[in-house]
Amino acid sequence: MRLKEIVITNSRDSEAEIEWACATDLMSDVLYYSRGNSVLITGLAKQQAIRTSDIADIKVVVFTRGKEPDRQTIELSQKKKITLLITPYSMFTACGKLYEEGLRCCPE
């Protein structure tokens, strides 16, 4: 699935390939359950979400509820070549819309 097919907010275009979704605010769960080509949907709009994604080879991160990250977080995502998206939706609605589009969570 191409990111532009599932983009839920206005963002820069991306050709990143997404196979799985992981929705959590807790970073150890990202590390435990995610796979490399997942999208992380999180309400933790902080540097830690980018660091964790980088360690876990996640290339696309969605911050929910329109949370604007600080400058350091944006810079880190650029440095690590992680596409950062912001959706106005809550985590529930974002998950619901992506699930409707056929995206599924990472198999354990």
């Binding site: 605010d25 807790l26 970073m27 150890s28 769960d29 590390l31 435990y32 999180t42 933790l44 902080k46 830690q48 979400a49 964790t52």
Partner: peptide
């Protein structure tokens, strides 16, 4: 710590995994 997105009790299981 939980509000920073950590401390959910998955650290050691993750290391083991």
């Amino acid at each position: 710590v939980r509000e920073m997105g950590w401390g959910a009790g998955m650290g050691l299981p993750n290391m083991k995994k």
